[in-house]
């Protein structure tokens, strides 16, 4: 049996006891929403509010919706409003060289639920095929006038650079620090390394992430990938600890 305690800033909500971990988490989330005074909206109402359901859109409208969503993820308003992708954009504005301000396309195609669902509406196989959803996102980005994704590149940025204010806000939001020194301490996490050759053995791996490093870059090093844009990530693994993914 599972019980979940959800903490958001000063608010905490403890669920009833459930057989499934997922149900405990959902119940804790429901209680937290009630405490926060947020009224959950069911899917049908949400679709009505958003206008057309993505299934009702024409092919062209689906592509436009995907391009619009990609542009939204780069908008300063979106990034500064508790966006779950903030760590990736913080790394983007600290990256040096040609990929400054860019995020790996796979981050957007895997982590943003709205993008995931728009890709599925364009091609239902993209839900299972990570390379296909990446391909759809890149195609949309490369044809979008506001975004910058050079040919043969797996990175997406926006043509107009982030303002200094946004850069500072992103760093402050992520680190809780006022300056851009990224003085957060090093951290490490455990991973399981699964070689593609069955002749090699599965290994436990400890990854150390320095104060100025981003976990995707460290992972790219361990995977022998050129850079973090070459990493594909799975959807979250069912029956595994929260947010576990295969990279």
């Amino acid at each position: 049996n599972f019980q979940c305690c959800l903490k958001i800033d000063e608010i905490s909500a403890t669920s009833d006891v459930f057989i499934r971990k997922k149900d405990a988490e959902q119940h804790a989330a429901k209680l937290a929403l009630e405490k926060l005074g947020i009224q959950p909206v069911d899917d049908a109402t949400a679709s009505k509010q958003e206008g057309k359901n993505s299934r009702d859109l024409t092919e062209e409208e689906k592509w436009q919706a995907l391009k619009d969503r990609l542009c939204t993820t780069f908008s300063e308003k979106f990034l500064l409003s508790n966006c779950p992708l903030v760590a990736h954009f913080t790394a983007a504005v600290q990256r040096k060289g040609v990929n400054y301000g860019k995020v790996p396309a796979a981050v957007l195609s895997a982590y943003d639920n709205k993008i995931v669902s728009l890709c599925k509406s364009i091609n239902k196989n993209s839900g299972k095929d990570l390379a296909l959803s990446l391909q759809l996102v890149l195609r949309a980005a490369k044809s979008c006038s506001l975004l910058d994704s050079p040919s043969d590149s797996l990175w997406i940025g926006k043509k107009e650079p982030f303002s200094e204010e946004t850069k500072e806000e992103l760093i402050k939001k992520f680190t809780g620090k006022e300056n851009d020194a990224m003085e957060i301490e090093s951290c490490s996490f455990q991973a399981v390394y699964i070689p593609c050759s069955s002749e090699k053995s599965v290994e436990s791996l400890t990854m150390r992430i320095g104060p100025q490093e981003h976990f995707m870059d460290v992972m790219a090093y361990h995977l022998g990938a050129g850079d973090s844009s070459h990493i594909l990530m799975s959807r979250t693994l069912k029956k595994a600890p929260l947010e576990s993914r295969l990279y």
Binding site: N1, Q3, I8, D9, V17, A29, A32, L33
Partner: peptide, 20 residues
């Protein structure tokens, strides 16, 4: 509800699930 929390609060929301 969980997706709403995650969308709104991202990594600020901490789920601590215990086996009871």
């Amino acid at each position: 509800p969980k997706s709403i929390i995650n969308k709104k609060y991202g990594s600020k929301a901490q789920y601590i699930t215990t086996d009871v």
